[in-house]
């Protein structure tokens, strides 16, 4: 099996670095040292750049994959948007040799080549398939006593469906299973598979409407009295976390649900402190949540 390089994307390193720190720490604990992907760029974002100019999108995506291939690594992404872009680019280039040749003609100008001998992996899918729910259960040292609203995100589900992974069924559970391996309980809520609202460039184009989509999800989660939201994507994370503040400011509401990326939840269950995982660095105040974690919201 190949080694793994960590593809950071934009939002994690530049807005929510806690997700980056949590990924490195949890993988290290699993005995996997992730290689830095030096010189990587934006994936580029699937909804915007792919729709502006598909050739540019494919060319930059293939460069990112090529950088990882040059280290003989599979590429690990921690973001649904990056996964959507890089997986789709990988699939198209692996099956269409003419397209691959075209892209490589451009990449050669920068000294790179897309070979197509490695895979693009999403952290959730990787943990589920390569470590396994039992593997996670074994490594967890603190049982988290939390009610969790799991948010899959559209661009985790769709690429897995297209790849025929078998993980996407009518009764989709792989992410919930990983959450429950930490001792937490995944709580069902209405329209659970609905979008966070942010994707496709909509957040930039029509922010108010995207926040109304988000607010509807938040209300459905609150209805079930969850302790936190757990996602698999820094962009969903941003929409839920900083989105709550935007909604509060615009409509005088008082949303205050802690938002965690799965790697941060896993980090807590492995015994890392909330500060080491950057859970205190969200826009939405997480002080109460952190206090409860420290006071034994976990059982050792």
């Amino acid at each position: 099996m190949s080694n793994l390089s960590l593809f950071l994307g934009c939002v994690a390193p530049n807005r929510y670095p806690g997700i980056e720190a949590a990924t490195k720490k949890t993988f290290s604990k699993l005995g996997i040292e992730l290689d830095d992907l030096e010189g990587a760029s934006c994936c580029p974002a699937p909804g915007v750049f792919r729709s502006f100019d598909k050739t540019t999108w494919l060319t930059l995506a293939s460069r990112n994959i090529a950088l990882s291939e040059e280290m003989d690594d599979d590429l690990l992404t921690i973001c649904n948007g990056c996964y959507s872009t890089l997986k789709e680019a990988e699939t198209e280039l692996k099956k269409d040799s003419g397209l691959k040749k075209e892209v490589n003609e451009k990449l050669f100008e920068t000294g790179h080549e897309f070979r197509g001998q490695h895979d693009v992996r999403h952290v959730i899918e990787y943990l589920y398939q390569n470590i396994g729910v039992d593997g996670i259960r074994e490594i967890v040292s603190n049982q988290l006593d939390l009610r969790v609203a799991v948010h899959y995100g559209c661009h985790l589900v769709q690429p897995l469906k297209e790849a025929g992974s078998g993980l996407v069924t009518n009764d989709i559970t792989f992410f919930d299973e990983l959450v429950e391996a930490t001792g937490a309980k995944s709580i069902d809520y209405e329209d659970k598979m609905m979008c966070c609202g942010a994707g496709g460039g909509a957040r930039a184009a029509v922010q108010d409407a995207t926040l109304r989509i988000t607010e509807k999800k938040l209300q459905n989660m609150i209805e079930e009295q969850v302790d936190c939201i757990v996602n698999a994507c820094p962009f969903c994370h941003l929409q839920f976390d900083s989105g709550q503040q935007d909604i509060n400011k615009n409509s005088g509401t008082n949303y205050e649900i802690p938002v965690l990326h799965y790697t941060q939840l896993l980090g807590l269950a492995m015994g890392f402190s909330p500060e080491e995982l950057g859970i205190n660095l969200n826009s939405t105040n997480t002080a109460v949540f952190i206090q409860r974690i420290k006071e034994g919201f976990v059982t050792a």
Partner: peptide, 28 residues
């Protein structure tokens, strides 16, 4: 605060990487 490098090891810490990106965007 998290003990990470101030600039992530992406194109933001690589002049060479950035110039490659610019070359590709000029070509397309």
């Amino acid at each position: 605060l998290l003990g990470l490098e101030e600039r992530p090891p992406t194109v933001q810490a690589s002049i060479e990487g950035l110039s490659e990106i610019k070359t590709l965007m000029r070509l397309t």
